[in-house]
């Protein structure tokens, strides 16, 4: 077993000025090169958990942190966020709050400058990264004069350009058009498989999660209540429904067919292709 790159050990966290902990006794490990999705209702603690990984909690936000969060062998509470940034890149959930520069190119450059990337290299990386997120040619535009989705693309580019070892994205595609969404997850999958980048995605859209993640962690009320492969998790349709969480429509379809019509006895499909194959089998069988 390699060393886990991220380890939460009995982490309980309470925000400053509140009494209720936002995270309760969280323990889990993530191995280098894993692609993990985090699912949970609004307020379940997903963002809070993400903020623990690069040390914004506790070093910038204060509050009360019990237990330890170890990232790349470092105890996050002992290093400033700006130093953790060499290891962890975070795309936050609100794109607009991440824009600080006067042009799109400079926004992407910011992290590179801080990491000391030479000018010549920046000149290459910036257009490449912008191309990757569909913002080619936007270099000189003001980040404040972009559409919502374009801003989100830029926020992703600004972090991706830094090529972090660990990439955390908090609802990175909430403003993206459907293909844009896929492209972002594809891109993360590529970085994950080609460069072994560890990816953590916080998402509400279960369809993309089912397709891309190696593992799904379900949070509820600040606790980890499920932790397994997408196939394992999304097959537990009733349990998730009780938590008011969705499953991929493919799984929902199979469940309806099984419970209401007694028409399904195979495994629950969680992505489009197996669902199509299974439905066609079902229809083919009746036509014969």
């Amino acid at each position: 077993m390699p060393e886990p790159i991220i380890a939460f050990d009995a982490v309980t966290y309470t925000y400053a000025g509140t009494d209720e902990p936002a995270l309760h006794e969280i323990s889990f490990e993530i191995q280098p090169g894993e692609y993990v999705a985090i699912l949970g209702l609004n307020g379940a603690g997903k963002t809070t958990l993400g903020l623990c990984v690069n040390g914004v909690i506790p070093t910038m936000l204060g509050g009360e942190l019990e237990g330890t969060v170890t990232v790349g062998g470092l105890d996050v509470s002992e290093y400033p966020v700006r130093e953790m940034s060499k290891l962890v890149g975070v795309v936050f959930d609100n794109p607009e709050f991440q824009m600080s520069q006067m042009s799109v190119a400079e926004e992407v450059a910011l992290g590179l400058e801080n990491a000391g990337v030479p000018y010549e290299e920046m000149k290459r990386i910036i257009p490449d990264t912008l191309e990757l997120v569909g913002l080619a040619g936007f270099e000189e535009r003001s980040p404040l004069g972009l559409s919502g989705g374009q801003q989100q693309r830029l926020a992703i580019a600004a972090v991706l350009a830094m090529k972090p070892q660990i990439l955390i994205m908090d609802e990175p595609t909430s403003n993206l058009d459907p293909i844009g969404k896929q492209e972002v997850f594809d891109m993360a999958a590529r970085l994950n498989s080609e460069r072994g980048m560890t990816v953590i995605v916080i998402e509400h859209e279960v369809e993309v999660m089912a397709r891309y993640a190696d593992r799904v962690i379900v949070l509820d009320g600040g606790r980890v209540i499920m932790n397994g492969t997408p196939q394992e998790i999304f097959s537990r349709v009733e349990e998730l429904a009780a938590l008011k969480l969705r499953v991929p429509e493919a799984a929902e379809l199979a469940t309806i067919l099984r419970t209401e019509y007694g028409d399904w006895d195979g495994p629950v499909p969680i992505t489009t292709e197996p669902a199509v194959a299974a439905v066609n089998d079902l229809l083919g069988a009746t036509r014969d």
């Binding site: 459907p178 896929q182 369809e207 991929p248 493919a250 489009t272 669902a275």
Partner: peptide
């Protein structure tokens, strides 16, 4: 750049 809901695709 659009995509139908998953069930519609199916």
């Amino acid at each position: 750049n659009l995509q139908a809901p998953q069930v519609t695709e199916i």
